[in-house]
Design a protein around this nucleic acid. Structure first.
Lengths: 147, 147
DNA sequence: CCGAATCCACCTTGATACTG
DNA sequence: CAGTATCAAGGTGGATTCGG
């Protein structure tokens, strides 16, 4: 079971998994959510090797999470901006952070979402879309096609 | 940046990432949510090599998502059951499924949560815990320590 | 400034065979 | 039934160097 099979699979979950399975990708999304757009901004912020960064940016772009946009023709310059899909992925990362903090971490909110308008931390919780109730202590099971 | 640094990092998100980064793990969690407990059940259900399965089960156990319990002394037999942390992780996987379906997939709900009591599919959405509003179209950014 | 091309070391997967 | 041992093959991260 390689990454190709993962991202090309028919399962919707597997596409998300293929995305965040890599550690750098989450950090790139973080920086992108902070407004970073340029190759070298990411590179210096993360201390990542340029070829790796290039590979990740391409993967994230192909996944539809980032969009590559040319903002200068001479010299040719591209920038990477979050798409709607990319912005929608942030809450999922945040929910994962809440989970990790609840069961493994200390009380410190080392990773979290911040509302741009208020500057206040957001606590991301996964709820049942119909009832609005948190999906905790709900007896349930996961249905997933075999990849 | 290797997996060790990921799972041992101080960042809460990274622990979740290290978990689901592997494709098998999600499938194991699915089967566990369906009530599977034994080694060979997982093995035949997934068609996974025994050494790989062993490794995954150990990792998931150490991550606190599964619990290894001895249910027979002679012969010694262990079973793996979801912990509370493991059950709480299912909605996150489901949310990832919703995301993948929205932006990449067709309309078919290939992967989703099912309520054990009603048998009805649950749609998992990430909301702001304070306002209860879905975290979409909310201007926000992610804060994360560098791994 | 933004990458692509090379190259290497390592890790991990996964098949198979074997044991208690 | 529940794993461990061994080993081959391939993928991945990363340093470095070079081109547009």
């Amino acid at each position: 079971m390689d990454t190709d099979k993962l991202s090309s699979g028919t399962c919707a979950i597997s596409r998300g998994l293929a995305l965040v399975g890599d550690a750098w990708s989450a950090l790139i999304l973080r920086d992108a959510s902070l407004g970073m757009t340029q190759f070298d901004q990411f590179r210096t912020s993360l201390g990542i090797a340029p070829n790796i960064l290039s590979r990740r940016l391409k993967a994230l772009t192909e996944a539809g999470v980032l969009e590559k946009r040319r903002y200068s023709e001479r010299p040719p310059r591209d920038e990477y901006v979050l798409t709607q899909a990319g912005r929608d992925f942030l809450p999922i990362l945040a929910a994962m952070g809440e989970w990790g903090r609840r069961y493994n971490g200390g009380g410190r909110a080392l990773s979290h979402l911040v509302d741009d308008r208020t500057g206040q931390p957001i606590d991301a919780v996964v709820v049942d879309g119909n009832t609005g109730k948190p999906l905790r202590d709900t007896p349930m099971h996961l249905v997933m096609p075999t990849v």
